[in-house]
Simulated scan of single mutants.
Amino acid sequence: MHPLFHYVNKYTVISEEDFKVFISYFTPRRIRKKQYLLEEGEISKHIAFITKGSMRQYYTDEKGIEHIVNLYIENWWVCDRESFAMGTPSIYSIDAWEHCEVLLISKENTLKLRSQCPAFNELFLRLDELNTIATQRRITYSISFTAEIRFKYFIDNYPYFVDRFPQHVIASYLGITKDTLSRIRNKIIKQRFF
């Protein structure tokens, strides 16, 4: 069965028959490594569900420095939520860190599916709750805790990112320098093994 079927059934219940209708609203797409799903200045017209690969969402400041806002891997939804909901140009770029396979759903199809499929509506409500919780937690950790505590939280809650993204990407996501992250990693490794 399709990975999205298993994903949806983690949060709600959908029959195989209903899933056939559900999946018909999505369009499969392959995105090469370093290819954009969304470029800064574009309006986000789709939500993507990753079935293979990884992506990153980032903001580029006036000095040309990239600041990682989100990281994504298989079974994660990808979108600039503000641009998608408001129809405004995005301040972010989203690109493929690895070769990706995604399922895209347009805003129009999202609205249709939400009105026609209770499971999809329930899924989106649950995902909104989880996203709000994760965002609040990330803000709290960013403004209240040391770099070491932020990194420990990151590896405890997102261990699968550590092998998928290099240190400089993780450091940017955590809002610290690569050197600081390297120092923290070495300290943690020493504490755990000595």
Score class of each variant (00 low, 15 high):
F84L: 06
F49K: 03
D18A: 08
C100V: 00
Q191L: 10
A171Q: 12
K178D: 10
D95Q: 13
T12Y: 00
M86V: 07
R29E: 13
F124C: 15
V21I: 15
T51G: 02
A119M: 08
E66M: 15
L37M: 07
F145P: 12
C117M: 14
K52V: 04
I149H: 15
L125T: 11
H46K: 03
V169D: 00
L181R: 01
I23N: 03
S182I: 12
Y158Q: 10
S15D: 04
E17G: 10
K45Y: 02
K190R: 10
F120R: 03
Y160W: 11
V78P: 00
Y158H: 05
L125E: 07
D128C: 09
L37A: 05
I73W: 05
P166S: 08
K178F: 02
W77R: 07
T177A: 03
I176Q: 06
I149Q: 14
G87V: 11
K107T: 06
S115E: 15
V169I: 15
G53W: 03
K52Y: 11
L38Q: 00
N157I: 02
K187C: 14
L71G: 05
Y7C: 01
E122N: 14
R138P: 09
T177G: 03
L4M: 13
E62C: 14
L111M: 07
E82P: 00
Q35L: 12
S83L: 04
M1W: 04
L174Y: 05
D128Y: 09
C100G: 05
I176C: 07
I139R: 06
P28S: 06
S54K: 00
Y173T: 09
F120K: 05
P159A: 05
E40L: 05
W76Q: 09
T110V: 07
T60W: 01
K20N: 08
H168K: 12
C100S: 10
L104F: 00
L37P: 04
N131R: 13
E108G: 06
L111Q: 13
E129K: 06
I188N: 08
I94F: 02
K20P: 09
F154C: 01
I139Y: 12
R192D: 03
L123M: 09
P28A: 09
E66L: 12
F154D: 01
E62I: 13
G41S: 08
F145I: 01
K63V: 06
H168V: 00
H6R: 13
I155M: 02
H67V: 11
D163N: 13
T88C: 14
K52R: 09
S172W: 03
T132P: 14
L127C: 09
L181M: 05
H168E: 06
L103Y: 01
F161M: 10
R126L: 13
S172M: 00
L104H: 13
F154R: 03
P3L: 06
T140A: 11
E40D: 15
E148T: 11
Y36R: 04
S24E: 12
L38E: 00
F194G: 15
P89E: 11
V13H: 14
K45M: 08
A85Y: 15
T140E: 08
Y72G: 00
T51A: 04
V69Q: 10
P159C: 07
S15M: 04
V13K: 14
I105Y: 06
I170T: 08
E148N: 07
S106I: 03
I94E: 03
A171E: 03
K112N: 09
R32E: 13
N75M: 11
P28K: 11
L111S: 12
T60V: 11
K178M: 09
A134S: 15
M55P: 00
